[in-house]
Design a protein around this nucleic acid. Structure first.
Lengths: 213, 213
DNA sequence: GCTGCCTTCGGACTTTAGCCCGTTTTCCGG
DNA sequence: CCGGAAAACGGGCTAAAGTCCGAAGGCAGC
């Protein structure tokens, strides 16, 4: 049986090193390339046509999610696993929706990683346990799988107002900034809170900080 | 000349591995221990009395900053460098104020790290360039060096309340959660806003999200 | 041409938030 | 022992936030 050909993309040289060496120690695995940014990852994947791409989410040059989408658009896309420190449900969702086979937190042990990589290469998906639980919960709560971003429900104006609220502005100040009546801003707030299933402007501000921009 | 004895603390096994191997390849350096959490780092440092401690900031069991303070309180504290992905000015400040000699971002290259480690062992401080600039700016802006955190002004209770506010809770809900009168919570809010120079609870929530963990 | 959604506003509310006056208890340092 | 800060509470008040009515023009799709 052939070796599993792997490309690693991570902007931290030392972490990349750790992963590469750990995987290389297993006879069944072969690291055929390393990239340090999103464009590099796409380019390398295209050139090396690996079986598996380990992709960090937080990378310069567009971020791992964008790289994921580009890689999946290639003629013979490899299996892709996101390897990341982030636990944002949102990003997990987006990554899996975009075609990632696995989502592995950077805290994994070396021994574990080798096992996971082999599973992934066989087409077996993998999501780190601590995430898996919350993922399932999110799906149960959100019915089918649309939980990605309720932000899309917001109109242009609503989003604009939400941004200002997230900066700590009062309704009156938002009105002043956008040349609207305070009353109108209040109406928008009500609608924003309803659409995002939030209870008050503090929750809205926090939500905006974490999901907007 | 003796080798430089180093302890590495990081909760990511793979990253730890990468650092350890990179450093070990240099004849002048000797990795004498690895820890994966804050208490472990303190304990290991106490037992091994290394020359240098490389400390990750985000670690289970209290976080790297706490470990830093404990380590510095030891009879013969090693030189300590924070090794982290975080770029929070706040944390850099706190770390340096607590006695860290260096603040190295995880994005460093292997070759660089070896050089930096040797500098540190000689007592030469080091702060990653991208941070150094902003640090100086912060100091110029904040006069002397007090810019660390206005959070220290908050009493225990105030901080507790701020956390709940940052979750979107109303004064009444905070009162319910902490078994206080709504009125009391309002009083605390007034005092919190005053101390942090903020105008309303939305700003407080945003502030808390960015400066409180 | 009708049906929606977006944008904008007004009236009339109720509920929260925030400030300024106080008081009491406790606890800690000089 | 006294001062000061923290912790908790109360009254009274103004302003801000949020909700529920309704309404009007615009622009898109069917």
């Amino acid at each position: 049986m052939d070796q599993i050909r792997i490309v690693i993309a991570d902007d931290h040289p030392l972490y990349r090193e750790g992963v590469a060496r750990t995987l290389s120690e297993d006879a069944g695995l072969l690291v055929v390339g390393q990239a340090q940014d999103a464009p590099g990852a796409v380019e390398l994947t295209e050139r090396m046509t690996p079986d598996l791409l380990l992709l960090d989410i937080s990378m310069p040059g567009g971020g791992g999610l964008q790289a994921l989408r580009q890689v999946m658009a290639l003629p013979n896309p490899p299996k892709v696993a996101m390897l990341t420190a982030s636990e944002e449900d949102d990003e997990v969702m987006q990554a899996l929706k975009a075609g990632a086979l696995g989502y592995v937190l950077k805290g994994v042990g070396s021994r574990e990683l080798v096992g996971i990589v082999k599973d992934l290469a066989r087409g077996q998906s993998y999501v780190s346990p601590s995430l898996a639980g919350r993922l399932l919960a999110a799906m149960r709560g959100g019915q089918k799988a649309k939980a990605a971003n309720p932000l899309e429900d917001l109109s242009k104006r609503e989003e604009e107002i939400l941004r200002l609220v997230a900066e700590g502005k009062s309704n009156k100040e938002v009105g002043l900034a956008l040349d609207l009546q305070e009353k109108t801003v209040k109406h928008y707030m009500t609608s924003i809170l309803q659409k995002l299933h939030l209870r008050n402007r503090v929750e809205a501000a926090v939500f905006a900080r974490e999901h907007l921009r």
